[in-house]
């Protein structure tokens, strides 16, 4: 399969990139890792006039935890996050998602920002960032906008990002003590999109859950923010009963259809199971 014709620019600074976006408007399309975009071009589901390659922008793939803020550059690759010592030791939800997305080769190229902007409801990063209550920073020439992760994702393949904007950074509050998180994903094989994914972040204080973040993958038209489940959790002491109750609250917002991955009942059952398991795992880590 062969992509259609397009022009190509490869800016080497953020400024140049923003200029290119301003110039090309809705005829331009950013290519980051390209692991979703290039297959779509080959299928001719997308036919942009100009591709703006941001892979040469400097400093877009950094990770830092400073001054109470955890920051991810938009060009962080999935594998980079999956193997990052800070993630594997502290932000397990990021490390686990980073090693479950697609396959190892795709993970070497695919990027955090690209995945968020692609907004596939079966993709994983949106749920993770919802759970972390992250902020997504969108920049255009002369202006910056910020959105909460749940707000950023509007629906299937649609986000708040405007044609002339670029996501530069994703950030969230750094965790203090008592933080535990997990990402669980059911995939039929490596490389498959999720049947169900649960991203969970908990902070425990004095034996009770002080804050909770729950994001759901493949459970609706976008990555879902399970606010009711969070409400069930906050202020309570972790227990199997509590987790079961939170799981039901998550299941209540799932809007799923039958396909070769299973019936709606089955998918909801997986969600229920994963919520319970994911919460238990996150709580255990929070207590460690």
């Amino acid at each position: 399969m062969y992509p259609p014709r397009f022009d190509y620019v490869a800016p080497t600074s953020l400024e140049e990139a923003l200029d290119a976006l301003a110039e090309h408007g809705d005829e331009g399309k950013i290519i980051a890792g390209g692991q979703s975009l290039i297959p779509m071009l080959k299928l001719r589901f997308a036919s942009p006039e100009t591709l703006i390659d941001i892979n040469r922008l400097p400093g877009m793939d950094g990770v830092s935890e400073e001054g109470g803020t955890l920051r991810f550059g938009a060009l962080c690759r999935h594998n980079q996050l999956g193997a990052h010592p800070l993630m594997t030791s502290k932000y397990h939800v990021v490390a686990e998602a980073g090693t479950l997305i697609a396959d190892p080769l795709v993970r070497n190229m695919g990027s955090l920002g690209g995945s968020l902007c692609h907004a596939d409801p079966q993709a994983d990063w949106g749920s993770v960032m919802i759970a972390l209550k992250a902020t997504i920073v969108c920049q255009k020439k002369g202006a910056t906008r910020e959105f909460g992760a749940a707000e950023f994702m509007e629906g299937i393949f649609t986000t708040k990002l405007a044609d002339d904007e670029i996501v530069t950074e994703i950030r969230c509050d750094a965790a203090n003590g008592g933080f535990g998180s997990s990402y669980l994903k059911m995939e039929r094989k490596v490389g498959d999109f999720a049947t169900c994914g649960t991203a969970i972040a908990l902070t425990l204080k004095d034996g009770t859950i002080a804050s909770a973040g729950v994001g759901l993958t493949a459970m609706g038209a976008k990555n879902l923010h399970a606010e009711d489940a969070e409400k069930v959790l906050v202020g309570q002491a972790p227990s199997a009963e509590l987790f079961a109750e939170a799981a039901e609250a998550a299941v209540a917002i799932a809007d799923v259809r039958e396909d070769s991955r299973g019936t709606p009942e089955y998918k909801k059952n997986v969600l229920r199971t994963f919520m319970k398991r994911g919460l238990a795992k996150a709580a255990l880590r929070a207590q460690a």
Binding site: Y8, A10, I31, G34, Q35, I38, P39, K42, L51, D53, N55, P104, L105, V106, N108, M109
Partner: peptide, 15 residues
Amino acid sequence: GTPLKSCTYLAVMAN
């Protein structure tokens, strides 16, 4: 040095 799928990578990206 990084393994990638060359069918999901443009030649111009390798410039």
